[in-house]
């Protein structure tokens, strides 16, 4: 835990997106269907659920709850305000809105914050902070919401997990770099905005198998393949992210601002267990640049990737499925 040189709130601050309205040129107005667009449990807003595509501003209504009694009783804080902050590391956007206190000092603060569509590629993060004057110093952050909301500009479902993008293309007739790989059944491409898997449509039967609504055996094989591809994506993304890392002047490696950072944060506890995230990142970076063994780390990276991709589960289910099929055939 961090130490602060001034008193902070101990009670929790929570916040909820309560409604989403979209605005565009002219008369474009849309109120998003809350159930489809927002998940209060996952704390995600999916703006891809909009029916119209010509919106340019999303207005998020917010309701935050702060420990009002603690603020009143302890009396350390004056000029208390509650602010919502929308940030996007990929586009350097920082938008701030002040919330207004509800009647009767209930600790309920509400307000609205706007998101400009042109300013975001995929995900923005929405935080709520309580700010006050403490010991004569104005603008102190005295509490923050524990987990940020995610506002996804393109997602069609409000989930924190990002879906794996799988497309099928002919490698033989595709871009030059794909032509060189024409014997491969699939490749993982991590160079774009989001990682994608490209299935080789020239590989006979593969696309049909992956989209299979066919026999139970086919479905089981497709399931294992999907988990396997997924693990490859996780491992590839991990390597890309580590290779792309920025180093501060004092040698401290920084988490990338986009999904690469999210992937590292998720996988590092499995790759270098029992260390803080920052320490784990430093350790992995150190090994990659040749101090300490990079090779020794590979099994752990693959373990972390397979775990994320749920390979063991997919494989176990398939093994059981095949046994059952065998029993049925022999029965």
């Amino acid at each position: 835990m961090r130490a602060y040189p001034y008193p902070r709130l101990t009670g929790a601050v929570t916040a909820r997106v309560t409604a989403v309205r979209l605005r565009g040129a002219g008369e474009c107005r849309e109120v998003l269907d809350y159930v489809k667009a927002c998940s209060a449990i996952e704390q995600v807003v999916a703006l891809g659920t909009a029916e119209r595509d010509d919106w340019h501003t999303a207005c998020l209504s917010l309701s935050a709850t702060v420990p009002a009694r603690e603020i009143r009783n302890k009396g350390h804080w004056s000029d208390v305000s509650v602010v919502a902050v929308l940030t996007d590391g990929a586009t350097n956007v920082r938008t701030v809105a002040r919330l207004e206190p509800g009647a009767g000092g209930s600790g309920e603060w509400t307000g609205e914050i706007e998101l400009n569509r042109d300013q975001h590629l995929d995900r923005a993060s929405l935080a709520v902070h309580v700010v006050a004057t403490v010991g004569g110093v104005p603008g102190r952050v005295i509490a923050s919401m524990e987990r940020d909301w995610v506002v996804d500009v393109t997602a069609e479902a409000p989930s924190r997990d990002q879906e794996l993008d799988v497309t099928s293309v002919s490698f033989g007739r595709g871009a030059e770099w794909l032509r060189e790989l024409r014997d491969a059944p699939w490749v993982v491409d991590t160079s774009g905005r989001l990682p994608t898997v490209r299935l080789n449509s020239d590989f006979e039967g593969l696309v049909a198998l992956m989209e299979s609504e066919g026999t139970p055996t086919e479905k089981a094989v497709a399931e294992v393949l999907r988990a396997h591809m997924c693990a490859e994506v996780w491992a590839a993304v991990f390597h890309t992210a580590i290779g792309d890392i920025e180093i501060e002047e004092d040698g401290t490696p920084q988490f990338p601002p986009d999904w690469r950072g999210a992937v590292l944060r998720e996988m590092l506890p499995d790759v270098v267990p029992t260390r803080s995230l920052e320490d784990a990142l430093r350790e992995v970076h150190r090994r990659r640049v040749g101090e300490g063994s990079w090779a020794d780390l590979q099994p752990r990276i693959h373990y972390a990737a397979a775990r994320r991709a749920k390979v063991p589960q997919a494989l176990a289910a398939t093994v059981r499925g095949i046994e059952r099929l065998d029993q049925e055939t022999h029965a």
């Binding site: 602010v83 902070h129 700010v131 603008g139």
Partner: peptide, 9 residues
């Protein structure tokens, strides 16, 4: 620890 957005909006 300081929110510049509040001190200097």
């Amino acid at each position: 620890t300081l929110m510049y957005d509040v001190i200097a909006p």
